[in-house]
Write a protein that binds this DNA or RNA. Structure first.
Length: 904
RNA sequence: GGGCGCUUAGCUCAGCGGGAGAGCGUUCCCUUCACACGGGAGAGGUCAUAGGUUCAAUCCCUAUAGCGCCCACCA
């Protein structure tokens, strides 16, 4: 028995357990050994994270594809797992330590701290997996992986060593984006440019040897002047080029710095002269290299001034009171120092002017603090070399982006890709497999023993090595995800069977972070693309289109929506919102509620079927039904099946969702269920039996089509309806996807006529305020023999749905009746008592005007010689048919108006 | 500076070369035996603006305006 109402909370857990218990999620099941493989690797969520709406969207779409392909009979692997999320996780644990007033990580030491992080991972690592299950995700959990588990770590080490040996990973000392809060270098992608209102300070540097002459430089970062080692002027700058070769005296320091000629100095920008701080600016670093300028690093890693005892800073500087005052700034934070430096420059009359200035300032995406270009040793990947095969693969269509326009974004970035800084000064992550011997000689090897052996060969004796302390960027390991999870570097059967994976589903925001890196790594190590298709969906935002963020307080918790409306309702909403044209998916509880109602509608339709004895019949063949109504629903089912299938094949999730919605609600519930009532309660045993069987069959088809979107409710109905009729040989999750292809134009025409007639009569009833209970007669005037026959067959149905108990025929409409034109024929409602002749005339005049307009629009086209000459034949034919239809309609309306005159 | 996208019914959005669509909201009617998380009937749009291409433009092209995102850079 189907319960009166569907209770998601009571059903979902039980159904999920049934799926897991059946082994349906597992890849490589024996019975599908010969089936085509279909594989998706999950974008691994942060292991200690929890499910937000973005995950809900991403995983709903993946689950829809996975369930669809599973029902199509494929051997499906949805590979799950989690990411160690280096910086994010380490920050969480450090924050915990702070909140609990426990010793910080540096006091604890590396080993104890890592133990602590692993404990936190064990404690919270199951959360998001559990939440994905609540969403209904049908991953093969037996294959769950973690980026820092033994196998994946082995893959990371091997990749690092091989890329190093191939010269594609190298260590370099250069400026890096340095996060002074997290005390680590980060990659370009982890830097966010934030627009800030600030100032442009114009500083006057005295020229050595010329009294009262200055060169003025403009800067947004006055404190870096302490690290200036030159002033640059464009060699073609007529106004300033005479100063090239002279020296400026750096205020507050006294260092003599050369005025150099360099194209970098744009005469149009700023003052035309630019201060050069090679240790603290990427462009200046390049200028410094060209002119062999010294680097003066004035900061500590925390971005505090480092002056006293700083040999670089002190080089070439003579003692003075001014210098002493500057040295007093030692240890000050960069922003505090800025203020004091400005004050002192102003006091010394060396501040030419201060302008308000809006510019973008780089911030660390995790820490939120201003990034400092900082000179350090870091490991880099030669991304440019690895990018070339990835670019080629997309150009050649071996991997295809959906929607396709994202390929352009991919190319833009890949073609201008910069070396990828992969080392992080953190502890949580894959420690870099590099060991150092005396003199900094580096040995990169898969194990310490191997490194030692290399060192022994090199030094000719056993030697102690120290390991590089840094770990790798999290994205380095996630870049290997499509093959590391399948067992690489071992030569596993899974790699052979499921690589390349079928499709990757992810948000467009991580094309660079993740998609591009997987393409590079996959092509390099597997000699093959990691996925055939990349489906990129939008980002979830709130109702107003604002990005959801904790700080804005506008987040929607998907678990709350699941609690409130059920997982199916949330899933259907997310699918319905995913169109390829949009970049944001605006989610609101109201929408989810609406699709919860849709689920309830189907639930009640199933209850209706059950109450009316619609039990499945073994060996039922939908193509052999004889009742027009049943042939019609078979026809409509096939149509819906085709629509949903085509939409899913094209990743048009919204189209797939709306096709199922329309079919279930507006076709099956609105019309089939209503039309079936007379048959199900009637006396004709044969017709009744066929209708029962067809209804049960159609409901089964609905459950199948809807299952990828609403897996819980459909599986529950599949189970309950299994209580009667033939035994089901499978759960719905592994039931075959509908294949029917049954067209029946005759049934469509007949039911279509009935629907149109009923709709027209209802419309008149509403307009004329005829109470629903009032029964009125129907006269079909001058209709064809076919229509007469139809009317005979559908009398009972029309009576029920349009409340017309008496159906008769006449040559012309009786006087004083409302005359409707339905599919070219007149249906008259004799309503002498209620009819308002004037209102009726107005109504008919309106219809006449519409018919005239339709005819005129077509005539304009058809009378246009160039249209007739150029338009395709079928379009012209279509126009002619339209005209004929409108002409027929017009004639009937004119006749109706004539009769109305007669009545008056 | 470079790139991408958006502007369609009150709201949120589909559609995209040949008859303007959905959901929500709204108006009117209905406690009809699956469902009020429901049923029935309506109202509501010069598809941002201006040009162009075409027999035909909401849809293609160009420009303009407004909104948004990404990348780069800023002395």
């Amino acid at each position: 028995m189907i319960d009166k109402t569907y209770q998601p909370s009571e059903v979902e857990g039980r159904i999920y357990a049934a799926w897991e218990g059946s082994g349906a999620f597992r890849a490589g099941r024996p019975e599908r050994r010969d089936a085509e493989p279909f594989c998706i690797v999950i974008p691994p969520p942060n292991v200690t994270g929890s499910l937000h709406v973005g995950h809900a969207l991403d995983n709903t779409l993946q689950d829809i594809l996975v369930r669809y392909q599973r029902m199509r009979g494929k051997d499906v692997l949805w590979q799950p797992g989690t990411d160690h999320a280096g910086i994010a996780t380490q920050m969480v644990v450090e924050r915990q330590l702070m909140e609990r007033q426990q010793p910080g990580r540096r006091e604890m030491g590396r080993e104890a701290f890592l133990k602590r992080v692993w404990e936190w991972k064990e404690e919270s690592g199951g959360t998001i997996i559990h939440q994905l299950k609540r969403l209904g995700a049908s991953c093969d959990w037996s294959r769950e992986r973690f980026t820092m588990d033994e196998g994946l770590s082995r893959a990371v080490i091997k990749v690092f060593v091989e890329l190093y040996r191939a010269g594609l990973i190298y260590k370099d000392k250069r400026l890096v984006n340095w996060d002074p809060k997290l005390l680590t270098g980060i990659s370009d992608l982890e830097v966010e440019q934030v627009e800030k209102k600030g100032h442009l300070w114009h500083l006057k540097y005295p020229i050595e040897g010329i009294e009262n002459e200055y060169i003025i430089v403009a800067t947004t970062r006055p404190e870096t002047m302490l690290g200036d080692t030159a002033v640059a002027v464009h060699p073609g700058n007529e106004r300033l080029k005479h100063l090239i070769g002279r020296k400026a005296v750096l205020p507050l320091v006294g260092r003599r710095i050369p005025i150099i000629g360099d194209d970098y100095a744009d005469p149009e920008k700023g003052t035309g002269a630019v201060k050069i701080t090679p240790a603290h600016d990427f462009n200046d670093f390049e200028v410094g290299k060209r002119h062999k300028l010294p680097l003066v690093n004035i900061f500590t890693p925390e971005a505090k001034l480092n002056l006293a005892g700083n040999a670089e800073f002190m080089a070439g500087v003579s003692p003075s009171d001014e210098l002493d005052a500057t040295l007093a700034l030692h240890g000050k934070d960069r922003f505090a120092a800025r203020k004091q430096i400005i004050d002192r420059l102003e006091a010394a009359g060396l501040m030419d002017k201060i302008e308000p200035y809006t510019h973008t300032v780089p911030h660390g995406d995790r820490s939120g603090v201003v990034i400092e270009p900082f000179l350090t040793d870091q490991w880099y990947v030669d991304a440019n070399t690895l990018a070339q095969p990835a670019i080629a693969a997309v150009r050649e269509g071996r991997t295809e982006f959906v929607p396709k326009n994202w390929e352009k974004t991919f190319f833009e970035w890949m073609e201008n890709i910069q070396p990828w800084c992969i080392s992080r000064q953190l502890w949580w992550g894959h420690q870099i497999p590099a060991w150092y011997g005396p003199g900094g000689k580096v040995f990169v090897a898969e194990t310490e023993a191997a490194a030692k052996a290399e060192a022994k060969t090199h030094y000719g004796k056993e030697i102690a090595l120290t390991r590089d302390e840094d770990v790798l960027d999290t994205w380095f390991s996630s870049g290997l995800w499509p093959f590391s999870t399948l067992g690489w570097p071992d030569d596993t059967p899974e790699l052979k069977r499921y690589y390349p994976t079928s499709v990757l589903v992810t948000g467009f925001d991580i094309i660079f972070f993740w998609v591009a890196r997987m393409m590079m790594m996959g092509l390099h190590f597997m000699q093959e693309v990691p996925f055939r298709t990349v489906f990129l969906h939008g980002l979830v935002s709130d109702e107003r289109g604002q990005k959801m963020s904790k700080s804005k307080g506008n987040t929607i918790d998907p678990l709350e929506l699941i609690d409130q409306f059920g997982a199916d309702a949330l899933r259907f909403t997310l699918a319905a919102m995913t169109s390829q044209a949009r970049r944001d998916v605006k989610l609101s509880a109201k929408l989810v509620e609406g699709y919860r109602n849709f689920g309830t509608k189907l639930w009640n339709a199933a209850r209706f079927a059950e109450m009316n004895g619609c039990v499945r019949v073994a060996g039922f063949d939908p193509t052999r039904t004889t009742e027009t109504l049943n042939r019609w629903i078979v026809h409509e089912t096939a149509k819906a099946n085709r629509e949903v299938t085509e939409a899913l094949e094209g990743y048009r999730f919204n189209d797939a969702a709306s096709a199922t919605y329309r079919f279930v609600w507006n076709v099956f519930c609105d019309w089939y269920v209503e039309f079936s009532k007379p048959l199900l309660t009637g006396a004709d045993g044969t017709a009744k039996d066929e209708t029962r069987a067809t209804a049960a069959w159609a409901l089964d088809q609905i459950l199948k089509l809807l299952h990828p979107f609403m897996p819980f409710l459909t599986e529950e109905l599949w189970q309950v309806t299994a209580e009667q009729g033939p035994k089901r040989d499978t759960l719905l999750i592994t039931a075959p996807w509908p294949q029917e292809n049954f067209e029946d134009a005759a049934a469509e025409a007949e039911i279509g006529w009935a629907i149109d007639l009923i709709t027209a009569i209802r419309s008149v009833r509403a307009e004329m305020n005829i109470p629903p209970a009032t029964k009125i007669p129907l006269v079909l005037a001058g209709v064809s023999a076919q229509t007469k026959a139809r009317a005979g067959r559908w009398a009972e149905f029309l009576q029920r749905l349009a409340r017309v108990p008496d159906i008769s025929f006449a040559d012309t409409a009786p006087a004083g009746s409302v005359q409707l034109v339905v599919r070219g024929e007149v249906a008259a409602l004799p309503l002498k008592d209620v009819i308002d002749l004037n209102a009726e005339r107005t109504r008919l005049d309106k219809e006449l005007a519409k018919a005239d307009a339709d005819i005129k629009r077509v005539d304009v086209k058809l009378s246009n010689e160039r249209f007739v000459a150029n338009a395709p034949e079928e379009i012209i034919e279509g126009e002619k048919e339209k005209r004929q239809e409108a002409e027929g309609r017009r004639a009937k309306i004119l006749e109706a108006l004539e009769r109305l005159k007669g009545a008056a």
